[in-house]
Amino acid sequence: MSEESFLREVEEELRSDKLKAFWRRFAPFIIGAAVLIVLLVAANEAWKWWRSSTAATASDQYYAAVELVERGDITGAQAAFAEIEASGPRGYATLARFHDAALLAEQGDAEAAIAAYDALAAGLDQRRLRELALVLGSYLAVDHLDVAAVEQRVGGMIGEGSLLRNNAREALGLAQYKAGDIEAARANFEAIAADPITGQEMQLRAYVYLEQLASTGIDDFTGETDGEAPASDATIPAAE
C-alpha cells in the first residue's frame, strides 16, 4: 500500500468517526424537529378537516331548523337553533341567534325579541351585523318603547357612514311620528327619499310617509302646516 493510499484511508476513517460523533450528539434534535414538522402538518390538515366537517354539520342543522320553521314547528326550531348557538361554528351560531330573535317577534314576545337583538348587537364585533341587529330591534321598539329607546339604538347610524342609515332613519322617523314629533319625522323621511343609495321599495315607503304627513296638515317639503299637528296616535303605514 502506498503512503498516499494509507493517508486517504486514515482521513476517511476520521471523517466517519466525526460524522458518527456528530450524529450521536445531534440526532435527538434532528429527529425531534422532523417529528414536530410532521405533527404540525398533520395537525393543520386535521384542523382543516374538522372545520370543514363541523361547518357541513352545522349547515345541515341550520337548514333543518329553517325547515322546522317553515313547517310551523316553532318549538322544535327554537331547540334546533339553540343547539347550533351552543355548539356550532361562529357564523352559523350568529345566524341561529338572528333566527331565534325573529321567532320571538313572530310569537308576539316583542320584549324578549328586542332583548335578543340587543344581546346580539352587544356580542358582535362585525359592524354590519351589529348594525343589523340594532335596526331589527329598533323596528320592534317603535311600537313597544319610546323615541329615546329607538334613538339610543340607531341614532348613531343615520349619518352617511352607515349602509343601513335609511333603515335607521325609517325606524327613528316612525317613532318620532308616533310620538307627535312631526318635523323630526318628516326630516328623516325626506332624507330617505333623497338618498341615492335608497332602494326603490324603501323610497316608495318614504313617499307614502310624506304623503301621509301632507294629508294630516303638514307640507311634505316645506314643513308648513295648515293647522295643529296630528295627535301622536295618528296612523301611518308601518315598515315591513
Rank of each mutant, 00 (worst) to 15 (best):
M1N: 11
S2F: 03
S2L: 06
E3F: 07
F6S: 12
L7F: 13
R8M: 07
E9R: 09
E13Q: 11
S16H: 12
K18Y: 11
L19V: 00
A21I: 05
A21V: 05
F26R: 11
P28T: 08
P28I: 04
F29Y: 14
F29E: 12
I31C: 05
A34T: 09
V35A: 09
L36Y: 10
I37V: 07
V41W: 15
N44D: 09
E45F: 12
K48H: 13
W49V: 14
W50L: 14
S53F: 13
S53W: 15
S53N: 15
S53T: 10
T54G: 15
A55D: 11
A55T: 10
A56E: 13
A56S: 10
T57F: 10
S59K: 11
Q61S: 07
Q61N: 05
Y62W: 09
A64I: 01
E70K: 09
E70V: 03
A77I: 14
A80I: 11
F81M: 05
A82M: 15
E83A: 10
S87N: 14
G88V: 08
G88S: 08
P89S: 08
R90E: 11
G91F: 11
Y92E: 07
L95D: 01
R97W: 06
R97S: 06
D100Y: 12
A101R: 07
A101V: 02
A102Y: 08
A105Y: 07
G108H: 02
D109S: 06
A110C: 04
E111K: 05
A112M: 02
A113F: 01
A113E: 02
I114S: 00
A116V: 01
A119L: 11
A122G: 08
D125S: 15
R128H: 13
L129Q: 14
L129V: 07
R130F: 00
E131T: 07
L132D: 14
L134E: 01
Y139E: 05
V142E: 03
H144N: 14
H144S: 13
L145V: 04
D146C: 06
A149H: 04
E151Q: 12
Q152H: 10
V154M: 00
G159S: 14
G159M: 11
G161F: 10
G161M: 14
S162A: 12
N166G: 04
E170H: 09
E170D: 12
E170V: 03
L172Y: 03
L172I: 08
L174Q: 02
A175G: 00
A175N: 00
Y177C: 00
A179E: 04
G180K: 01
I182K: 05
A184Y: 07
R186F: 06
R186V: 01
N188V: 00
F189N: 04
F189H: 02
F189E: 03
A191T: 03
A191V: 03
A191P: 03
I192L: 06
A193L: 05
A194S: 01
G199Y: 06
Q203N: 15
Q203W: 02
A206P: 03
Y207P: 01
V208I: 10
Y209P: 02
L210G: 05
E211Y: 09
L213H: 03
T216S: 13
D220T: 09
F221I: 13
T225M: 08
G227R: 01
G227V: 04
E228N: 13
E228M: 08
P230K: 03
P230I: 03
A231S: 05
D233L: 05
A234P: 01
T235K: 06
I236V: 08
